[in-house]
Amino acid sequence: MTTATGQLNKGSFKFPLTETLLLLVAVFWGTSYGLTKSALLYTSVLVFISIRFSITFLCMLPVVIRDFRRGLNKDWKIAIPTGFILSAIFFCEVFGVSQTSASNAAFLISLSVILTAFAELIINKKRVSNTLWILTLCSVVGVLLLTSNQGIELSLNAGDYFILAAALLRALMVTLTKRFTEGKEITTTTLTSLQSLVVASVAIIAAMSYLPASEVVIPTSTEFWLTVAYLVLFCTLFAFYVQNYAVRRTSPTRVSLLMGSEPLFGAIFAMVWLQESLNTVQILGGTLILVSVIVTSTRES
């Protein structure tokens, strides 16, 4: 690993810090889809994104101001391009999920793992090891089997193309974040905060431009705000901070592979919380993802 914290002790078995944090992101993201769907019962997509990312920015603002005063953010402008990429990812995912099946969306978004490996090779000129390629393919096949309960449609519709675009943008996001931040003076907190500000700004401008005034309404439901609080704290603030933190310390492909285990934790959440069951093929898929995660997390870079 890239730090002493991330090294395995001889003769012991444990997950290094960076990889453990990435798996926590996958766990939180695995629970986010149902909660997001319930939040959207109270407001439109654009208003929801505006609220979610505005709160994320405001939560981090005091720390960002402190970092600027300490002179730690001389290269703050590098956060802006990745903020626009993050905006595009959210819009593609939201519109894609609304027009395709959950199984198609889960499988197609998992292709970001393979796309990241290619992006790392092309953009950052970094060769991905053969072992990591095998683990990447293993993870994607695992997602395919895990989501096979609803069947994967071979013919792509508009929603599928949106999800594919989101997968490509995810790959570009982690790869370009790695490239832009190498050797630059910007704290991870500021990077995450400014990205959130860009997403919120784009969503607010889009909402004001394209939504009728009657739809630009701030919900008052307690359930809505409790859901938003969870999504902001764990699925946005924590998740994107960890993603930026991890990309600066290890390879984008490793980051994408570990975060790509999200469908596995979504399935576990469905089993425990929703009392759903998995068939043999799905269990095999989950096992493939789990093996990929364990090997990736416990092998040195």
Rank of each mutant, 00 (worst) to 15 (best):
T3P: 00
A4D: 10
T5P: 00
G6I: 00
Q7I: 02
K10Q: 11
G11Q: 10
S12D: 04
F15A: 05
T18N: 07
L21Y: 05
L21H: 01
L22I: 08
L23D: 02
L23W: 07
L24G: 02
L24P: 00
L24M: 10
V25N: 03
G30I: 09
S32Q: 09
Y33I: 03
G34H: 04
K37F: 02
T43W: 10
T43F: 07
S44Q: 14
S44K: 13
I51A: 05
V64S: 05
I65G: 00
R66L: 12
D67K: 04
G71R: 04
L72G: 00
W76H: 06
K77E: 12
F84T: 04
I85V: 14
I89Y: 00
E93Q: 15
E93N: 04
G96L: 09
S98K: 14
T100K: 08
T100H: 09
A105H: 02
A106E: 06
I109Q: 02
L121C: 05
S129A: 09
S129N: 05
T131Y: 10
C138M: 15
V141F: 14
L144I: 07
S148Q: 10
S155M: 11
L156K: 06
D160S: 02
L164F: 14
A166D: 02
T175E: 07
T181A: 11
T181Y: 08
G183R: 12
E185D: 10
T190D: 11
Q195N: 08
L197M: 14
V198A: 12
A200P: 01
A206G: 00
S209P: 01
L211K: 05
L211M: 12
P212D: 14
V216T: 10
F224M: 06
L226N: 07
V228Q: 11
Y230M: 06
L231R: 12
L233I: 14
C235H: 04
F238C: 03
V242N: 07
N244H: 12
N244F: 10
R248A: 13
R249W: 08
T253N: 06
R254L: 11
S256M: 15
M259R: 11
S261N: 09
S261C: 13
P263W: 11
F265P: 03
F269E: 07
M271W: 09
V272S: 07
L274N: 11
Q275W: 09
T280N: 06
G285P: 09
S292H: 08
V293T: 13
I294V: 15
T296E: 13
T298E: 06
R299Q: 10
